[in-house]
Design a binder for these strands. Structure first.
Lengths: 210, 210
DNA sequence: TAGCAAATACCTAAAACAGGGTATTTTTAG
DNA sequence: CTAAAAATACCCTGTTTTAGGTATTTGCTA
């Protein structure tokens, strides 16, 4: 009988239990073969230099790197390696970041094993894939005209407020008058619907300005 | 040949892939049998009312409840059901919360499958169990005299400050004088080493007071 | 090039806050 | 029962912030 083509897969996840689980799960798929495992980005990069891998399935959050850093490094060193990202986050910003950083598929950990396998097969066919839940989240996000209405300068000032600088200090470091800072501040308050710095901070956190 | 006693296990985790993985993993253990699965606390509680379960293995974070709420509810309704908590968090406060809320074991998702199985067996023998990593974290924590130095009342006031209430408003809602609020506030600032509300907010976030 | 958004700057006045105290009552723990 | 810790309350003073304006300059774009 003819040997079926088996894709050589590398798994990256710092949660051993999940990693073991996925390995066992994929063991029953005839066209997949786990040839490498890593618990963090460093180990993954090292293994990739001497193990031939057709497909990489990686956790979104790794202990030793920020997600997009890892993806960007991979894009540079192994531009043809397709990547499926497994994540527990469903925030549109994160999903977008991941896909923009070169991942070919985004699957939630709350999805079924079938979704993961489906994503892997799609990716091996050169297609990108996001699970239905993820697609939904992305759709919803495009609806609301997000992005805070704050201008660049205002965001700059919000960041300085978050660092506990007073109006006077901010004025000094931006080489503008204290009056100007007050004006910006006033506009920030209005736009954020805040009545105290705390409100501005909440707004900044919600809109990921910090 | 004699039937070996198999423990009837229920798995609770909202990440299907992990759940499927663990199920497959435990499939090879001769003394464990997965008899129920749930993706959230509600479903778990329902299933427990009519499925006989010897041991519950639950994710720490579930979509529909705060961890300790679920554990407390279990303690009331099923006081004799031993629980192994699987978690990705290694913060001592969380570990302590979980164990204080009645869980018999705490295992990290980054631990090996053997750890999970070991924890389950220990628990079935009536013992408590934490994986070596977890034990280490707990040890380290007892060293530093942690817990914010803030008193109950001060924490209460920090929370109100975070909700953007002014001293006057806080005074009104706590039925104390504005002077008193100012005093508390002053002490909070001193203890937190802050020089503005933003500093207090950062302190509060770091010490998980909000 | 006319128009608009953004950034700049100033004025005023009330309110809130920060920081320095001190002092009394209530609670807690030894 | 007593000492310490916490909660309560007030005083004072100067500073900062908030909130309401108006106005000029700059840079982009239709």
């Amino acid at each position: 009988m003819s040997e079926p083509k088996r894709w050589r897969v590398m798994l990256v996840d710092d949660h051993r239990i999940l990693l073991d689980g996925i390995k066992t799960l994929l063991g029953s798929e005839p066209d997949m073969e786990i040839v490498a495992e890593a618990g963090d980005a460093r180990m993954a990069m090292q293994l990739l230099t001497y193990v031939h891998v057709d497909l990489l399935v990686s956790d979104f959050s790794l202990p030793d790197t920020r997600h997009t850093d890892f993806l960007n490094e991979l894009k540079v060193k192994f531009p043809n390696l397709p990547i499926v990202v497994l994540s527990m986050h469903d925030e549109p910003e994160i999903i977008r970041d991941v896909l923009n950083s070169g991942a070919k598929a985004y699957v939630m950990k709350s999805n079924s094993r079938e979704e993961l396998v489906k994503a892997m097969r799609h990716v091996m066919l050169g297609e990108t894939y996001v699970s239905p839940e993820v697609a939904l989240k992305l759709m919803q996000a495009t609806q609301k005209t997000n992005s805070s209405a704050l201008t660049e300068r205002e965001i700059e000032i919000v960041k300085l407020i978050a660092k506990e600088y007073s109006n006077k200090q901010i004025a000094d470091m931006l080489f503008i008058s204290e009056r100007t800072v007050e004006s910006h501040r006033k506009n920030i308050f209005r736009k954020a619907g805040a009545h105290s710095v705390v409100g501005v901070m909440k707004y900044a956190l919600e809109h990921k300005l910090l």
